[in-house]
Design a protein around this nucleic acid. Sequence first.
DNA 1: TTGCCATGTTAGAGACACTAACATAAGTTA
DNA 2: TAACTTATGTTAGTGTCTCTAACATGGCAA
Lengths: 200, 200
Amino acid sequence: MKTTYHHGELRQALIDAARHLIAERQGNDFSLSDACRRAGVSTAAPYRHFPDKTAIINEVVAQGFTDMGNQFRAATAAFPAGAPDRIVAVGQVYLAFAIQEPALFRMMFSQKPNLSEDDIVTAQGRACFGYVLQEVIDYCAFHRVAGDAMMIAVQLWTLVHGAASLTIDGDYAKVAPDLSVSTMIQEGAQKLLFLLPMRG
Amino acid sequence: MKTTYHHGELRQALIDAARHLIAERQGNDFSLSDACRRAGVSTAAPYRHFPDKTAIINEVVAQGFTDMGNQFRAATAAFPAGAPDRIVAVGQVYLAFAIQEPALFRMMFSQKPNLSEDDIVTAQGRACFGYVLQEVIDYCAFHRVAGDAMMIAVQLWTLVHGAASLTIDGDYAKVAPDLSVSTMIQEGAQKLLFLLPMRG
DNA sequence: TTGCCATGTTAGAGACACTAACATAAGTTA
DNA sequence: TAACTTATGTTAGTGTCTCTAACATGGCAA
């Protein structure tokens, strides 16, 4: 129904187009004009719905965090509270998300200064980490693991985030092309969770 | 000597200006026009020395890897081969480098597709990781640590890289503002190196 | 029906990367 | 020294981008 003067769903259409273009153009910044072409409107139309391009990116990023959180929930649902499989599942989702939508993943974390001021984005990001933290707290409680759960959660997040970044940016490929990233994470996480004894 | 028609040192002057602007403008892409203004030449002048803007970025990134490698060497020089302090020092340099020049750090690892095809950049990056790997190999040999040195090296790199990224992008600040990043890394690295016994 | 206002449009400003054509300076050779 | 060549600068201009201003359209309410 493009015959009408008014689009009707332009706001969401632009967000969708932006997300599509972000995925398509990888790291290279997408162009708002392209999104307009995709949505079939003029390049001035977005400014009736968003103050500027950054606001659209914020929407896409916030939606990304929502999706990631939902995937966390879906992936952990099968396991009982406190099970180590839940933590593994969260890590796998994190990595898979980065691989599937690398450019979006980068935008979600590698924020420009202006982006970080968006309250919704911040809240969504916090919620995601809160989910990880709760899993680790549960795990530590059930298994009487020594150490600060918060500290362990941050370490796991850091390891998985580093792995996701280095994977999608092709840095492992340059330096250790035969590396199995998921094995590396798995083994590293076990050590961070005190699951491997000191063997040295 | 700006009175002459020919600049004389324009190539290096542009690289320096680019590095300065990358640092100044943080994540936001710097403008080649700005670099020209800084160097006191017209916007067409760079194209006598570089095919395009990406080529200048490549030079800056390669120089960044060289600097990082030199800092590795300087920071480890005080400790004997195989000492754990050497590994700690490398990690500290990595993190400090990211904090000091966050935008450059991002460009060094978070490469655009075209960037990764530059042979010099790839070689410099490989050399940097090679340095880390050698330290871990030495350490494992001296301390008879169980496990694949390559795997441990990758895990340490991943942890420190994740910490550097999450620090400079302000993600820790949003979620765990009181976190001491260096303590977190230190403790995590000990676990990855089998230096902490299983306590659970 | 009439008027309002949300949401489109076209036209254009100002910035950017990059190109084409021209200008100058600095060697190089006769 | 004079003339030719080449390296390295210039100005002018193209096409693209974000965003703004002024105008157009059409749905909705009084």
